[in-house]
């Protein structure tokens, strides 16, 4: 992936540095832990090992193993524990190594964390962050490759964050930690090495604000997480045939910045929604529906959705590669919609 495509909303400053997405996440966690002693991290191999992805390397040395806590392989157990801890004065950040493992924590997240505030008439709060991963093409097969953020996006009471750049990852994670609600933060495991500019000074990004990653007048490409890079690549190809594509990243699937998505499509009259989750009943379905309802009279044709193929993620590279949306697929779809041969 080219680093040149990573647009940040910031003007370049003298103090700006380049960090990878993984480093940006580590920096956000470290800053929040320095700022607020209530923040604790827990998960499998998060301490000295710094997680399997090495995202947390160095945090246990700075904050100690009573704030960067290795847990047993017990996702439901430590997630449930973190919910109780969040209700009673701490601000836990739990690490679920692979997004596929959220199946193990669904009761705790969907029936407990999401509902505690509402069921108690607004009295108890659950300021919890769950960091987990999504994304295929790591040759990890069906139980380590899924993008299941739509599951959580379906449940009232949860917020769901999908950063696509180092800049966004840092600013959004800091906001998630300061949020009074349970927030699930999905990181594309293939993007941890992606580099981008990060200002030296502190900043946060509010949850629920979409970001235009590239402006264009002919077609809107709504893309999330890993698919933002794919959409930017397709936009570059489209530029070469005279099509101006606008790439907009909702950054959170809930809250969803419906207004900015609709505004973009009102301008371009065409939209493709690209997301690495399954298209069926997925994030693309919801976003396409929002656009269809909100910009119906401006649309030239139906909103198109591109998501993961509706199969379990296979192991063999030539099989796995065809399950994930690519720049070429997005380019072809956009070219057809814009009537370019």
């Amino acid at each position: 992936m080219s680093t040149l495509d990573v647009k940040t909303a910031m003007a370049p400053s003298a103090t700006e540095r380049e960090l990878t997405l993984g480093e940006a996440i580590r920096e956000a966690l470290a800053e929040e832990m320095r700022r607020d002693p209530r923040v604790v991290l827990m998960g499998e191999d998060v301490a000295e090992a710094g997680t399997v992805f090495k995202v947390l390397t160095g945090l246990s040395a700075e904050f100690g193993t009573d704030r960067v806590i290795d847990t047993p392989i017990s996702e439901a157990g430590f997630t449930g524990l973190a919910i109780g801890a969040a209700m009673t004065g701490l601000r836990p950040v739990v690490d679920i190594m692979f997004g596929d493992f959220i199946a193990l924590v669904m009761d705790q997240m969907a029936n407990q964390a999401a509902k505690v505030h509402y069921m108690s008439g607004g009295k108890w709060k659950v300021p919890l962050v769950m960091r987990t991963t999504l994304g295929a093409t790591r040759r990890s097969a069906a139980q380590h490759s899924q993008s299941l953020h739509a599951w959580f996006s379906h449940v009232p009471g949860l917020k769901v964050v999908l950063p696509s750049t180092p800049y966004d990852a840092k600013g959004l994670l800091k906001s998630a930690i300061r949020d009074e609600n349970p927030v699930v933060f999905f990181e594309d495991k293939m993007m941890y090495k992606l580099k981008g500019a990060i200002p030296a000074e502190e900043y946060t990004i509010p949850l629920g604000v979409a970001d235009i990653k590239r402006s264009g007048d002919d077609i809107t490409l709504v893309a999330t997480s890993s698919m933002v890079q794919v959409a930017l690549g397709a936009a570059k190809m489209l530029q070469e045939i005279g099509v101006g594509a606008e790439v907009i990243d909702p950054r959170t699937t809930w809250p969803l910045d419906e207004e900015r998505l609709i505004e973009s499509v009102k301008k371009t009259s065409r939209a493709i929604v690209i997301d690495e989750g399954y298209a069926r009943y997925g994030a693309t379905a919801e976003i396409a529906s929002v656009i269809a309802e909100g910009a119906f009279h401006y649309l030239d044709q139906p909103v198109k959705r591109i998501g993961a193929m509706h199969v379990p993620i296979p192991f063999s590279p030539p099989l796995e590669d065809v399950t994930v949306p690519t720049e070429q697929m997005v380019f072809e779809a956009a070219r057809k919609m814009c009537g370019k041969s």
């Binding site: 439901a76 157990g77 997630t79 449930g80 524990l81 973190a82 919910i83 109780g84 801890a85 969040a86 209700m87 009673t88 004065g89 701490l90 009761d107 705790q108 029936n111 407990q112 505690v116 069921m119 108690s120 108890w124």
Partner: peptide, 20 residues
Amino acid sequence: LGANAIVGGSAGIATGAAFS
């Protein structure tokens, strides 16, 4: 901390309160 209608569902919450 709340009554819970998932059988066994509050074991995590209680243990987490003890953690805090």
